[in-house]
Simulated assay, not measured.
Amino acid sequence: MKRLLGLIAVLVLTVSCGVRPSGVITGENAPSGPPNGNLGHAAMVYFVLNGNVVPVVRSGVGDVAADRVRVLEQGPDEGERAGGYTTELPPSFEPIAIGVSDAAIGVNVRELTPNAVSQIICTVLEAGGGGASGTVTLSGGGQKLQPQACGR
Rank of each mutant, 00 (worst) to 15 (best):
V109M: 07
V109R: 01
R110N: 14
R110Y: 02
E111W: 02
E111G: 09
E111A: 14
E111V: 01
E111H: 11
E111M: 10
L112V: 00
L112F: 01
T113L: 04
T113K: 15
T113S: 15
T113M: 04
P114E: 09
P114L: 09
P114K: 10
P114M: 10
P114S: 07
N115P: 00
N115K: 00
N115I: 00
A116C: 09
A116L: 03
A116S: 11
A116K: 04
V117H: 00
V117D: 01
S118F: 00
S118G: 07
S118H: 02
S118V: 03
S118K: 05
Q119N: 04
Q119G: 09
Q119L: 05
Q119P: 07
Q119Y: 05
Q119H: 06
I120W: 04
I121A: 09
I121S: 03
C122R: 05
C122N: 11
T123N: 01
V124P: 11
V124I: 05
V124G: 08
V124Q: 05
L125C: 11
L125V: 06
L125G: 05
L125D: 03
L125H: 05
L125S: 04
L125P: 03
L125T: 01
E126P: 02
E126T: 12
E126A: 15
E126S: 15
E126H: 06
A127L: 06
G128M: 11
G128K: 12
G129M: 09
G129D: 07
G129Q: 08
G129I: 07
G130E: 14
G130S: 13
G131L: 13
G131D: 11
G131T: 08
G131V: 10
A132V: 14
A132E: 14
A132L: 02
S133I: 14
S133D: 15
G134F: 12
G134P: 12
G134C: 07
G134D: 07
T135S: 14
T135H: 04
T135G: 09
T135C: 06
V136N: 09
V136W: 08
V136R: 09
L138E: 06
S139W: 06
S139T: 15
S139Q: 14
S139N: 05
G140A: 10
G140H: 04
G140L: 02
G140N: 04
G141I: 05
G141T: 03
G141C: 12
G141F: 02
G142C: 12
G142Q: 10
Q143T: 07
Q143W: 02
Q143V: 08
Q143N: 14
Q143F: 08
Q143C: 03
K144N: 08
K144Q: 15
K144V: 15
K144Y: 02
K144S: 15
L145T: 07
L145K: 12
L145R: 07
L145F: 06
Q146C: 01
Q146V: 13
Q146L: 12
P147K: 09
P147C: 11
P147G: 10
P147I: 07
Q148E: 14
Q148W: 01
Q148H: 01
Q148P: 02
Q148M: 15
Q148K: 14
Q148C: 01
